[in-house]
């Protein structure tokens, strides 16, 4: 019987890989590449850097796949590795800077088309606001940035964020609430 591999649950795929089916890893890459690149992109603020780092994360995941504990959701484990790699990377890259000033002055960036029907004026206004929000996110501390991105761009639950960041759930909530307030203040400074 032919197995429809695309329908396999994550733990079953992991089992295949651990059993030596290297090609099965492609299924996990397909499943999570978009989420991870976007997560890392908002963390490091640079597209090419994000792509490269995401590749490193997947390789690390592959190398350590046998240590995956099925009691966790696979995506939690994956994001945890991505989070550690990214924070390490940021520390190495700019040990002093808490914020990232030289973001891609984009435009050659490949961005998915927005689905709303807006007039050209509104569209411009919205683009400007989006830019300011992205910039404001980049000015948060790496941890605050991570919390905001996980919660509001990736819609992760507080429980999951707690597991990804190894923080108690109460701490996660408080820090997210504080990060939002800061984000709003930074945004206000720009308007």
């Amino acid at each position: 019987m032919v197995e429809t591999k695309e329908l396999l649950a994550d733990p079953a795929i992991v089992e295949k890989i651990v059993g030596g089916d290297k090609e099965a890893f492609a299924l996990l890459v397909e499943r999570y590449q978009k989420g991870l690149i976007n997560f890392i992109y908002h963390m490091v603020g640079h597209y090419e850097e994000a792509v490269e780092l995401t590749q490193d994360v997947f390789i690390k995941v592959y190398v350590n796949i046998a240590t995956y504990d099925k009691n966790f959701k696979f995506s939690t484990w994956l994001y945890r590795i991505a989070s550690n790699c990214t924070i390490d990377h940021l520390r190495r890259r700019d040990p002093m800077a808490a914020s990232l000033d030289e973001r891609d002055e984009d435009d050659n960036l490949c961005i998915e088309p927005a689905s709303h029907d807006l007039g050209p004026h509104d569209l411009l206004e919205q683009k400007q606001l989006e830019k300011e929000i992205v910039k404001s996110i980049s000015e948060l501390s790496p941890l605050q940035r991570e919390l905001i991105v996980l919660r509001h761009i990736h819609y992760r639950s507080y429980e999951e964020i707690a597991k990804i960041t190894s923080l108690p759930i109460g701490t996660v909530k408080n820090r997210i609430f504080r990060a939002r307030k800061q984000l709003m203040e930074r945004l206000r400074d720009k308007r």
Partner: peptide, 12 residues
């Protein structure tokens, strides 16, 4: 702000 965060475009 929270609504806007959800509409931030994704990179490819």
């Amino acid at each position: 702000l929270l609504d806007r965060l959800e509409t931030i475009p994704l990179v490819c």
